[in-house]
Each structure stands twice: as C-alpha cells, then as structure tokens.
C-alpha cells in the first residue's frame, strides 16, 4: 500500500493529467454504463435502479429488430471501413511519395479543414447536396445523367456516403504517416534489384504501411459502428443504425438500464469484430511469411 502511495505521489503525480483523464472520462463512465446495464427501470419517472442486479436487460435487448438493426449497422461499418481504406491508400501513397515535400503541408491541411467544422454541420451539408431538389440533383438532370430527381437522401446509400466522408481523414492521416516514414531508400533498393512499380508497392510500401492500415481501420471502424449522428441526419428508415436505437432507450423510453445493456453489447461486438479481424490478419501474415521465406543457407 505504501509503495502504491509512493508511486501515485511520486512519478505517478507527474502523469496526473493523463491518468486522471483516462480514469474520469473513460473508466468511470464505461464502468457506470456496465453497472446500469445490470439494473432495471422501476417506474415511469425513474430512469434506472440498481438495488436488484440481473442479466435480464441483456435478454430483453435481444429482440429481432435489435439484431436486424445490428446486422445492418455492421454492414455499413465494415463496408465504410473498406471504402475508406480503398480511397485512402492511393491518396496517402500519392501524398507521401509523389507530392514534393514542400506542398505536402498544404494538401494535409486541405484534408484536415473539414475537421474544423462541427461533425453535425458537416453531415447536414450532405442533406443539401443529396436532396432531391438540391443542386446536385438538378445538375445531373440537366446534364441528362438522371431522368428523375436524385433518390439517395434518407437511404442506406446516403449513410454510407456520409460515414465515408466523415471518417476518411482518420484513415488518411495514419496511412500517410506510415507511408511517409516507410523509407524511400528501401523503395529505391527495390527498384535497383529489378522490382517493378507494382511489385515494389505490394512487397515494400504496403507491408511497411501495415501499422498505419491497422490503426486507420481501428480509428474508422470503432467510432463508425457507434455513430448515431450520420444515420439520424441522412439515414431515413432503411439506414437506421444501432446508435439510434440505444439513444431511443435513453431519451424516449427513459430506460437507462436497457440502453446501457445495448451499449455494452455494442462495445463487446465491436471488440469481437476487431479481434476476429486481427486474428485473420495475423494468420494471413503467418502464412505469407511461410510461403515467401527466403532461404539464405544454400548460398
């Protein structure tokens, strides 16, 4: 105990802002959500009671509509993460390798500028762009590319566009950092040894950028799965996401216990998906390492 106190008051005190932030803004709120999820809603005017703890709220949350919306959410978030990755890889590569160093700052700033605007306002902007009476719809009709008004707003496609737009910088930035530091020297060595552009990209640049791919995917997938704003603003009925159902329990039903149980399920499923993806990637690397191992002993 004394050693613990010495740690907290000694070196630990220096790190106070960091661990206090983690404790008060992460550990405590998540612990409260977990605790409430074992409680129940005693009457119309009380949101949660915890004098009797049970797993009943978890059983209660597993309705057909909850699971259907959950499946739809995972489809949106997995597809959204893949789309972000597919767009970001060439862009980050171009930015890190092809663009002269003195222009990179400006281009990075352009990637960041939308982030200076509020998330909700950015998403509302897409309502105007995708609106059936909006300028995009009118323009496409005048060009003869559309025969009727644009019918994307309030569909799953609108949510998909919105999440890719909202989370794209979170994928570009780690990829850019990873590719920027993934040495030019190694790429040149690869060319010298006779490798072509594609071969160099897939055997040198991409493997070195893998930590960036992994952190980018985490940064996009996790918040995207719990996103509630994009689906509410652009989603309509078939673009519903699980975050909205959880919000309904907290706001409209005033049932914090059930909402908390649903939130815990969301956290666990998100972690499970990340764990499965990590396991698959790890296996894949293990297999490719086996297959492409270079034998030096015979030389």
């Amino acid at each position: 105990m004394r050693r613990f106190a010495a740690k907290i008051l000694g070196p630990g005190a220096l790190a106070f802002p960091t661990w206090a932030y983690a404790v008060f803004f992460f550990v405590v709120p998540v612990a409260l959500v977990l605790f409430y999820s074992f409680g129940y809603k005693p009457d119309e005017f009380t949101t949660v009671a915890t004098d009797r703890l049970s797993l009943e709220r978890y059983a209660e949350s597993m309705t057909g509509s909850f699971l259907a919306t959950f499946a739809a959410t995972l489809r949106i978030s997995v597809l959204g993460t893949i789309l972000c990755l597919l767009i970001s890889v060439p862009f980050a590569y171009w930015l890190a390798v092809k663009v002269p160093a003195n222009r990179r700052g400006v281009l990075l700033a352009i990637v960041m500028v939308p982030f200076w605007t509020n998330f909700l306002v950015r998403t509302l902007g897409w309502q105007i762009i995708l609106s059936p009476d909006g300028f995009l719809s009118d323009g496409l009709q005048q060009l003869g590319l559309l025969s009727g008004p644009l019918n994307i707003l309030y569909t799953r496609a609108a949510v998909q566009i919105g999440v890719v737009y909202n989370y794209l910088p979170l994928m570009i930035l780690p990829l850019f950092v990873a590719m920027d530091s993934a040495g030019q020297a190694l790429r040149e060595a690869s060319y010298d040894l006779g490798a072509g552009r594609l071969s160099t990209f897939f055997r040198i640049t991409m493997p070195l950028a893998m930590p960036g791919v992994a952190s980018g995917c985490l940064l996009v997938f996790i918040p995207l799965t719990g996103d509630y704003v994009t689906a509410t603003v652009l989603g309509g009925a078939n673009g519903s996401m699980i975050g909205q159902i959880i919000a309904n329990q907290f706001n409209t039903a005033q049932n914090w216990a059930l909402g908390a149980a649903m939130a815990v399920v969301l956290i666990l499923v998100t972690l499970a998906v990340v764990a499965v993806a990590a396991a698959v990637l790890w296996l894949g690397r293990l297999i490719t390492a086996r297959l492409t191992r270079v034998q030096l002993e015979g030389i």
Partner: peptide, 18 residues
C-alpha cells in the same frame, strides 16, 4: 407504463421500414 412498449414498437417499425 405503455411508454416502453411504444418505444419498442417504434424500434421495430424503424427496423422494418425503408
């Protein structure tokens, strides 16, 4: 006391809509 059920119906309706 019907409030929770009404929210459940709304949730089910949203999952069914589109």
């Amino acid at each position: 006391s019907g409030q929770q059920r009404r929210v459940d119906i709304l949730t089910a309706a949203q999952a069914r809509s589109g």
